[in-house]
C-alpha cells in the first residue's frame, strides 16, 4: 500500500493564538483509500484537513511546523508541501489536492462554466476537449443526467444536493490526486447525503479521499481508515474496522459509544 500523503510531527498555530491548535500529528493517507477524520467539534479535524492544501495561507499569520509530504506522481518522491513558498507552487498544490466544503459553493456562473473553471485555470482552451471533460466529470459525479439539458443555466439554481455534487464534479474535473472533503454532507438532507456517500465509494478508485465528518455512521460506512482526534491531538489511528470495533484508547471508545461529542 502506497502513502500518497504523510503528515509527520505536524503542528499548526492560528494567527495570534498563544498555543498550537494541532499538536504533533502523525498520519498517513493511503492511495485510493478513504481516510476519515472524526472527533468532537473543535478537536482540529477541519484545521488539519485545511492544512493539507494550505488553504490557511489565505489568512496572514498562521503557522505550520513539521512536515506534510505529498507524493509526486511522476517522480514518486515525497515532497514537503509546507516548504512551498511561491504562489505558483501553491496553485499547483491546490490543483493536485482538491477540496469540498461544508456548504456547497457553486460559483456565480453557469453549470458548464463551473465545471470547466479549473480546467481553464490550467490553461486548457480547446473547446471540444473541455466539453468532453465536463461531461465526463458530471457523469463521474452522477449529475450528468440531471443537468445535461441545462448546462448553460446558473449553477445556483440547482438543489443543495445537486450543488454539492456539482462541486465534486468541479473538483475531480482537474483530476486531483487527493480530494479533501470537509463535512460535505452536513448541510444536506438524508437522500442527498446517501448520493454523496455512494459517490465517495465510487470515486476512490481514481482519487484518494480524506473526509472530515461529524457523523460516525458515515465514517464507518464509507472509510477504510479512521483517525480520531481530540483537543488538537491525534488520539488513535487505524483501519476503520479496528477503530470502531476494537478501539485501543478509552477516549476513542467513549466517543464512538456517544459518551461525549
Amino acid at each position: 500500500m502506497n502513502k500518497v500523503m504523510d503528515i509527520k510531527n505536524f503542528y499548526f498555530t492560528y494567527a495570534k493564538a498563544p498555543k498550537p491548535s494541532l499538536k504533533n500529528i502523525n498520519l498517513p493517507i493511503y492511495e485510493n483509500k478513504v481516510t476519515a477524520l472524526i472527533g468532537p467539534s473543535g478537536c482540529g479535524k477541519s484545521t488539519l484537513l485545511r492544512s493539507l492544501n494550505r488553504i490557511h495561507d489565505l489568512y496572514p499569520g498562521n503557522k505550520y511546523e513539521g512536515e506534510v509530504l505529498l507524493k509526486d506522481l511522476k517522480t514518486e518522491e515525497m515532497e514537503n508541501i509546507l516548504e512551498y513558498k511561491k504562489e505558483n507552487e501553491l496553485i499547483n498544490l491546490r490543483q493536485r489536492v482538491g477540496m469540498i466544503f461544508q456548504k456547497p459553493t457553486p460559483f456565480p456562473m453557469s453549470i458548464y462554466d463551473n465545471i470547466s473553471y479549473g480546467l481553464k485555470l490550467m490553461g486548457k482552451k480547446n473547446k471540444s476537449e473541455l466539453e468532453d471533460k465536463v461531461e465526463e466529470a458530471l457523469k463521474d459525479a452522477a449529475l450528468w443526467e440531471e443537468v445535461k439539458d441545462r448546462l448553460k443555466d446558473d449553477a445556483r439554481g440547482l438543489s443543495g444536493g445537486q450543488q454539492q455534487r456539482l462541486c465534486i464534479a468541479r473538483a475531480i474535473a482537474v483530476e486531483p490526486e487527493v480530494l479533501l472533503m470537509d463535512e460535505p454532507t452536513s448541510a444536506l438532507d438524508p437522500i442527498s447525503t446517501i448520493a454523496i456517500e455512494e459517490l465517495v465509494a465510487k470515486l476512490k478508485d481514481r482519487v484518494t479521499i480524506a473526509i472530515v465528518t461529524h457523523n460516525m455512521q458515515q465514517a464507518s460506512r464509507i472509510s477504510d481508515y479512521t483517525a480520531f482526534m481530540y483537543l488538537g491531538e491525534l488520539i488513535e489511528y487505524g483501519s476503520t474496522e479496528q477503530i470502531f470495533l476494537n478501539p485501543k484508547e478509552k477516549r476513542t471508545a467513549d466517543y464512538i459509544a456517544g459518551k461525549f461529542g
Partner: peptide
C-alpha cells in the same frame, strides 16, 4: 461568502481570478 472564495482558491485560482 468566505467559503466561496476559499473554494476558488482551492481550485488553484489566483487572487485576481
Amino acid at each position: 461568502p468566505e467559503v466561496l472564495k476559499e473554494s476558488a482558491y482551492a481550485m488553484g485560482a489566483t487572487k485576481f481570478e
